[in-house]
Amino acid sequence: MSEEVRFESGRFEGIVVRSPLVSPARLADVLHKRFAGTESYFGGEPAVLDFSEVRDWPEQVDWSGLVAFFRRLGLQPIGVRGVPESFDAALKRLHLANLDEAALRLEAARPTEPPPAAPTSAQAPASPQTGTARAASTKFIDRPVRAGQQIYAPEGDVVLMAGSNPGAEIIAAGSIHCWGPLRGRVLAGAGGNLEARIVATHFGPELVSIAGVYQTFENGLPASIANRPVQVKLQVIQGQSHLLIEPIETI
């Protein structure tokens, strides 16, 4: 086998976190609701922490606390952006690159808006996030998704060939298709894809969400859709988005 070491120019995908806050404690407060204590929400993607929106920089920043916080969410911070030079030494100690200006040409960044994790109201009309969906491979899951299991497709669709059970969580940037019972928490269009849909042969989840617009079914499902073929899509009426949950008419 060749032992030649090669250095190639390459591009890789990651997540950009735009934060107006630099205090780990404040971040934890703000993000707690969104992730509701879900450890490792992300799947170990590299991340750049963008602090260009920070107004008043404190004298001291707890960089290691910040890194630890984002690691707990399942991200791997590799660098920061928009940070004053006075912090360079501190960043170096943590092996974080200060990627200002040219080093990082951010493409039309797609916001990775995570779905709400702990909804309190039944229907939450919200302004959906826009985003560009890319062609990506489909994830097929052949076994039932069980309580406590999470299927996460950061790109593309998820097809559940054996359904999901109460307590499961399915998150896809694209659409979610389900053969068999659909239970648990089902979040499609997680990257902001407004066109994403949820399609199921036996509908019965605890929560559905498309591009961050979600609905829970605390009082059970109406008979017209419970355990029947159903599709869920996003409908925009006068700038307000609503989930349209309707039975699929089969011939």
């Binding site: 076994r143 998704v145 069980r146 309580a147 406590g148 299991q149 059970n165 109460p166 307590g167």
Partner: peptide
């Protein structure tokens, strides 16, 4: 039943 479902998931991982 719910706990059994959980343990089945753990068996699978």
């Amino acid at each position: 039943v719910r706990d059994s479902d959980r343990i089945l998931g753990i068996l699978q991982s």
